[in-house]
Simulated scan of single mutants.
Amino acid sequence: MPPSFNTLAAPSPASPSWRGSHPGALSVASSAQPPTEILPHLFIADLGAAENPKVLIQLGITHVLSAMCGRVLLPANMPLAQLQLPLQDSPFAELADYLPASTLFLSDALRDPKARVLVHCAQGISRSSSVVCAYLIAKYGWSPEQALRFVKSKYALADPNPGFVMQLGEYARSLERTR
């Protein structure tokens, strides 16, 4: 673990409560993989999981951050707070403009101990993991490399495209200037 990690404030992939898959992991037929808890109450998944009422109910999801263009069909009968970022999964797509709003949405939601947040994109690979990495960068002061390494330790599918990784670096530098 790099010395800049704050082991008292930040979760550790080595901690016993974070090893392996989450107990009671879901089997979602329409999803490549069930939602994965990255931090307490913060999950990553794909669109299939976000649109599946059984998954949302079983996880107790209260907030959904959709990092994708197009319509997301969240269950109408569930009171969910939602933020949708119209992101394309392209190295040239503008991610950085959306990171302050996504970080604020996640920070505000996770202040409530009863909140459970799902971040998703179409496949749950690039856009959603980039947004979660940006949150970790803002919350813990981690570098993009540290944040991505942590997310990948929980969620092997995480693989932001190269343009998003570069923009995470820009975001980290912008946060350093304001601290």
Rank of each mutant, 00 (worst) to 15 (best):
G169M: 06
R173C: 12
S153Q: 08
F105L: 06
A96I: 13
M78V: 09
P160K: 04
T178Y: 00
A93G: 13
A93L: 06
P23E: 07
V151K: 00
V165R: 14
F92G: 11
Q84F: 10
F150P: 03
A49K: 00
P3I: 01
L73W: 04
A138V: 01
P3W: 05
Q123C: 11
Q82C: 14
F5E: 13
R177C: 08
T62C: 12
L73M: 15
L110T: 02
L85A: 11
A32F: 09
V64Y: 04
R173T: 06
S153M: 08
K139V: 06
D97T: 07
S21F: 13
G48W: 01
A49D: 01
T7Y: 04
Y98E: 10
P144R: 02
G169Y: 14
K54R: 08
L42Y: 03
L74M: 09
V132A: 09
P91V: 04
S15G: 09
A134V: 08
L104C: 08
W142Q: 07
A49R: 00
R71Y: 12
R116E: 00
A67E: 11
V55N: 00
A50Y: 01
D108W: 05
K152A: 12
L110F: 10
I61M: 02
Q33K: 01
C133F: 02
S126L: 03
A10C: 10
D112A: 04
P2C: 11
L148F: 08
P160D: 03
H63D: 14
L157S: 08
F164A: 06
S4C: 03
Q84I: 13
L136F: 08
S153G: 06
C121S: 15
V151S: 02
D46H: 05
W18Q: 03
G163C: 08
S153I: 04
M78N: 05
P13R: 07
T178S: 13
E170W: 14
R111H: 10
A29F: 08
A32G: 11
D112P: 00
Q167S: 11
S107D: 15
P40N: 09
S4N: 12
K139W: 06
P91Y: 07
P162V: 10
A32D: 12
N52R: 00
Y135H: 14
V55Q: 00
P34N: 03
P35H: 03
L39W: 04
A138D: 11
P2H: 13
A76P: 11
L175A: 14
P13K: 03
D112L: 06
S15D: 15
L42Q: 03
G169E: 15
R177E: 15
E145N: 05
A147F: 09
F164S: 03
N161I: 13
A172T: 02
A45G: 15
V55H: 00
L136H: 04
V119D: 07
V132E: 10
P3M: 02
L65R: 05
L95A: 12
Q167E: 14
A14P: 00
D89N: 15
A115Q: 06
A134S: 14
P34M: 01
Q84N: 12
H41W: 05
L148R: 01
